[in-house]
Nucleic acid binder design. Structure first.
Lengths: 182, 182
DNA sequence: ACAGCCATGTAATCGGTTACATGATTGG
DNA sequence: CCAATCATGTAACCGATTACATGGCTGT
């Protein structure tokens, strides 16, 4: 009984997608991630195919049948071991890295805002606020008329709330620094 | 004039720390990150020393003097090119990846909560809520009596707000799923 | 004095990105 | 029909992690 290694975030999420959507090609999994609202999940071809090969080698997924078309694609599904690995990754229990404050490049930069001239600081904060407002509008638009799974909906709600909080925080920062009317 | 490559988040933040604190040893920079409130910035020895070597090779930082003790440490400071690289990394302008929704492993998992049994789901959400509450208390405690830079304070405030929002969101999820009294 | 931590590194490995290659499919 | 895009991969590289090695420093 060789100890099961911990899955990466991407591996766990890929298992989750395959489990939730049924047998998938690697490409279909990739599209699923690209459709997500966070730009973080880019999932290049160079990531997904080796990842699928890895999970197959470890018997967490297996090829169930070819797609049928002439491109030679293959549909993969979870094995029982894959299902167990998914549940272990998903939790409970939750790891500190899962629950702890996620990284935020915008927040990192605000910590160094003292290094900018007042003018550049204003430009930074104004651009941040504008972009956040635009992205919030997009998120709201996507939410309307999207016939999606309730759990995916809750996750997107979390994303929306996070963005909203970032915007109010940026406005608070601007006020705290006494930035002239934005 | 060879084109300057883009800096990674870690490289940019390291330049920022050195600029803000004055000449530092690599180890001192590392401690600075470990003291941050997000568990994401672990900055192993195997990351920081090669990174410092890289930035030195590219003339963005330079060794200014030895620490003096017998351990052979070296203090590094920014070069003028390093200062410019820092400002380019910091922005404005801001990239979509900087402003866009940051990744959140908790949010990712909530999207797959449908795969858990109701009991496991309750356990997941209760554990998440408990941990978030505990971490919020810690963050508040740290905030009191911390004589820090105003910009670092604003960044921590952002971290606190983000955690607070995640907690209220988790409670909302629990209510939406009709979880029996937590 | 010496156990345990501090500080400075190095080597192997790993998971991901970018860039490229190739053939199937589709829209005008 | 042919250009653009879809779909399936591969190769080279890169930045980070884990694990290890070494020696200085410090508290009891």
């Amino acid at each position: 009984m060789t100890r099961a290694r911990a899955l990466t975030e991407l591996e766990g999420a890929v298992l989750g997608v395959i489990r939730a959507k049924g047998p998938c090609t690697p490409y279909a999994v990739r599209r699923e991630f690209q459709a997500s609202t966070t730009p973080y999940w880019r999932v290049s071809a160079g990531a997904i195919y080796p990842l699928v090969a890895r999970l197959t080698r470890e018997r967490l997924i297996r090829a169930v049948r070819p797609t049928g078309d002439a491109r030679g694609g293959t549909l993969y599904a979870l094995t029982p071991a894959g299902g167990r690995a998914l549940l272990r990754w998903l939790g409970p229990p939750l790891t500190p890295l899962t629950v702890g404050a996620p990284p935020d490049p915008l927040r990192t930069r605000v910590g160094f805002l003292g290094l900018l001239s007042p003018a550049a600081r204003t430009a930074f904060l104004d651009e941040a606020a504008d972009t956040l407002r635009r992205q919030l509008a997009e998120l709201a638009a996507v939410a309307d008329g999207a016939p999606i799974d309730p759990f995916e909906r809750l996750a997107r709600r979390g994303s929306y709330l996070a963005m909203e909080t970032r915007l109010t925080w940026i406005l608070e920062v601007r006020k705290a620094l006494g930035v002239p009317i934005g």
